[in-house]
Structure formats: C-alpha cells, structure tokens
Design a protein around this nucleic acid. Structure first.
Lengths: 125, 125
DNA sequence: CTGTATCCGATGGGATACTG
DNA sequence: CAGTATCCCATCGGATACAG
C-alpha cells in the first residue's frame, strides 16, 4: 500500500514532476475535487440519473454549475451523457468505466469524513 | 464495500441529510478537497515538514494560501502545528492521527488519477 | 424537460511589502 | 525563518430570464 507522496513518486512510471503545476494529474484532480465535482460524482454512484434528478439530488447546486460540472466531467471521460432526441428532451447521465473506478476510490474517503466530521469541527470554521 | 452514496446514507448513523448544504461532512469535505488542501495533506504524508519546506514542496502555492490552508486543516484537527519558541523561529507541521487516517484513504484516489490522467484529457479542457 | 445567456456580487488567490 | 497585511484582479458561482 502506498502511504506517502514520496513513495507514490518513486513508483515505476512516476517521478518528481507528479503534481507540479499544470501536470495532467493536477488538472483532473482539480476537476474531481472541485466544490461540485465530488458531489455530482457521488450522486451518480447510485446509477443513471436525469438532469432534473441530479439538480434535486445535489443539494444547493445551481443550474449553471450543474451544467458546467457535468461538461467538465464528461470531458474528463468520467461521466457519460446520453441524450434521447425526443420532445420533451430526455437526457441521462451515468458514470463511465473510469468514473466508476474513480468513485470506488472516492467513497472510502467520503465515508471516513462522514463518520468523523462531527468531532473535527470544535467551533465555527 | 460501500459502492454508492445511497448505500452510504443507508448505513447506521447516517441518513438523507448527509452531504446536504452546511452539514459538517460537507464543510470538512470542502476543506480537504480545496485547491491546496489535497496537496498540502499529500506533502505531509511524507512526515513532518517545516514551513519553508512545504512552501517549496507544494509547487505554485503562495504564502498566503499556505498559511490559510494550514490554519484551516489545523482547525479541522488534521494537521498539528508545533512551534519552537527560538530565534529564528522553528515551526514543524505534521499529520495528526486523524490526518493520517484521512490521507491513507486519499492516496488510492490520487494514485488512480495519477495513473489515468494522461489518457483522460484528449484536447485542452 | 434540458439546458443557455447574462448580469453581478462574493470569494479565491497572487504579488508585494513588511514584522517579530 | 515564519509568517501578516494590503492591494487587486480573475474566477467562481448564484439569480434570473429565456430558448429549443
């Protein structure tokens, strides 16, 4: 198990440029860990959802940010957009295989935070 | 293994209010997944570091954001600040036990992104 | 229903200068 | 060395209106 950034950089295929400014890893990391990126990916962990469902599922998100977040994640090959050319429109969003793999690794992190968040914030942050 | 947000909310101790606006989980999640939060935590995964070391280790971070990020993470009980009252000042930062647990769950996610980021960004995002 | 367009305020975040 | 203080701009992000 990798337990530090130093070890990660020492693995075959990596070097010290990992996570330097502008490197692809940091770009994707920024998208995934953006304010709404995590929450949209988590919402899609349940399976396929329509636009309106996501809008309601991700508490507090605006239409603008939902659209923007979905487009970014789609551009990162993490989310699949499936539009049915009907009237009214019907569009379904789901995780790609990559998205599924990523969410599998994100859930343990979120679960740990959910279990511990309460006792981590003494006063108001 | 938990594979979806729905399942996570169904676990004992959780409910549908998990990850709604303003809930503690979301507050901590926002700190941890902030632009610099992830990178500072990763830098500390190697062990104890001084201010200047962190400044150089986290490529591109400004003094202002390093200070702000460290204070936030300290407030979340993830980072320990150990100041020696000497001249010149000597301050060491390290992960708390909680921070270590969190980083253990963050590294698999980062490692997966590092392995896959290259083939996920076709053009310029 | 699924978005886009526009406006605008809030916040993030960098550069620089300065201090104990 | 380890920060703080200040200025300032760019981006984030919400509200609203509107379109296909």
């Amino acid at each position: 198990m990798t337990v530090s950034l130093r070890e990660l950089r020492a693995l075959p295929g990596f070097d010290d440029t990992l996570l330097t400014e502008g490197c692809p890893t940091r770009v994707v990391l920024d998208h995934v860990t953006s304010k709404w990126g995590v929450l949209v990916l988590l919402a899609l962990s349940d399976g396929t959802h329509r636009w309106g469902e996501l809008r309601r599922a991700v508490d507090g998100i605006s239409e603008k940010m939902l659209a923007q977040t979905l487009r970014t994640l789609e551009g990162d090959s993490l989310v699949l957009r499936d539009a049915h050319p009907t009237i009214p429109p019907h569009v379904e969003y789901s995780l790609t295989a990559s998205g599924r793999e990523l969410v599998d690794r994100m859930l343990p992190l979120v679960e740990w935070i959910a279990r511990n968040a309460d006792r981590m914030l003494p006063a108001a942050p």
